[in-house]
């Protein structure tokens, strides 16, 4: 009609549209401002920050704070920069995410397509595991890791995150596979495919959306975890989050804010990257099954 090409349900006038955009832009700025401050100040020499004007652009642009944060900054007792800790985090997060996702998929497959007596109880317990607060398991877990000889190591951290991750990944995959037609599994059984062949050839190829959801969720949680990292890691196995804390909260020397900002951005970049790459699948995965199976 006269309003022109608009595919929204509610038709809005010029004034209300102006108000909506203004509010949206204000919120946008509100959310983006911290990121702006961090980026801008990580690119200035320390003098400029001390001189005030957190919001102003750098007068002299410099990458020195980034270099310092990455390879020379004093963290704990050694001046190694964040690099070794970044590597620790990568070494921890990749296997932890991969294994918890695969195990979650297998669990979901068994809980929906190979049901057995008491399977709902097992699923209920796993679900319950998702809601146990981290603080509660600190001491028992420390004892367990000690017994297994994994205390203070990256594999130890992987194990802890695996135990916590399986509950969530199982929940995701179980609910996704519950929508998956059981007749397909039966057809594959008659065709002669076994337990793992069905999983590998029939279930996994259809699991893309939920795998993305699971990976994003696990990656974000494990990468950002501080408590387990601080509790169970030694100096040589600390993840990025703990190292960043050590960098920022060191009580000696000059506070190099520009270096701190650069380090903080480094710590946030991987999760940001994962969201940008897989974000659209994330929404799709969350919606999958809600409209059509």
């Amino acid at each position: 009609m006269a309003g022109g090409a608009s595919d929204t349900v509610v038709r809005t006038g010029r004034v209300s549209r102006f108000v909506i955009y203004t509010v949206l832009i204000v919120f946008c700025i509100y959310y983006l401002l911290p990121l702006y401050v961090m980026v801008v100040n990580s690119l200035k020499p320390l003098d400029e920050i001390r001189g005030g004007g957190m919001l102003s652009l750098p007068q002299t642009w410099t990458l020195a704070p980034w270099g310092s944060a990455w390879s020379t900054a004093q963290i704990g007792i050694e001046a190694t920069g964040l690099r070794p800790y970044f590597m620790n985090s990568i070494l921890m997060v990749v296997p932890a995410v991969a294994i918890s996702t695969i195990l979650g998929a297998l669990n979901g497959y068994v809980l929906t397509k190979w049901r057995f007596r008491g399977d709902t109880i097992i699923f209920g317990l796993m679900l319950f595991g998702c809601f146990i607060p981290f603080q509660m398991v600190l001491i028992p877990m420390a004892r367990m890791l000690g017994l297994m000889g994994l205390a203070g190591t990256v594999p130890g951290l992987i194990f802890v995150h695996l135990v916590y991750g399986i509950g969530f990944s199982t929940l995701y995959f179980r609910n996704y596979y519950a929508q998956f037609p059981t007749e397909l599994v039966r057809a594959a059984m008659i065709d002669g495919a076994g337990f793992f062949k069905i999983f590998q050839r029939i279930m996994l190829p259809s699991s893309g959306p939920i795998a993305v959801v699971c990976i994003i969720w696990q990656f974000t949680n494990i990468w950002n975890d501080f408590l387990f990292g601080a509790s169970f890691a030694d100096f040589d196995s600390q993840p990025m989050t703990v190292a960043l804390n050590n960098l920022v909260s060191s009580s000696t020397g000059v506070k190099e804010y520009n270096v701190h900002f650069a380090g903080a951005i480094m710590a946030a970049l991987p999760t940001l990257l994962v969201y940008i790459v897989a974000g659209r699948f994330f929404v799709r995965g969350l919606m999958a099954g809600s409209v059509k199976g």
């Binding site: 037609p181 007749e183 039966r186 057809a187 594959a188 029939i202 190829p205």
Partner: peptide, 12 residues
């Protein structure tokens, strides 16, 4: 061999 009501063709 079995033919199912939903045909159960492997979608992938």
């Amino acid at each position: 061999a079995m033919v199912f009501q939903s045909y159960a063709l492997y979608p992938n």
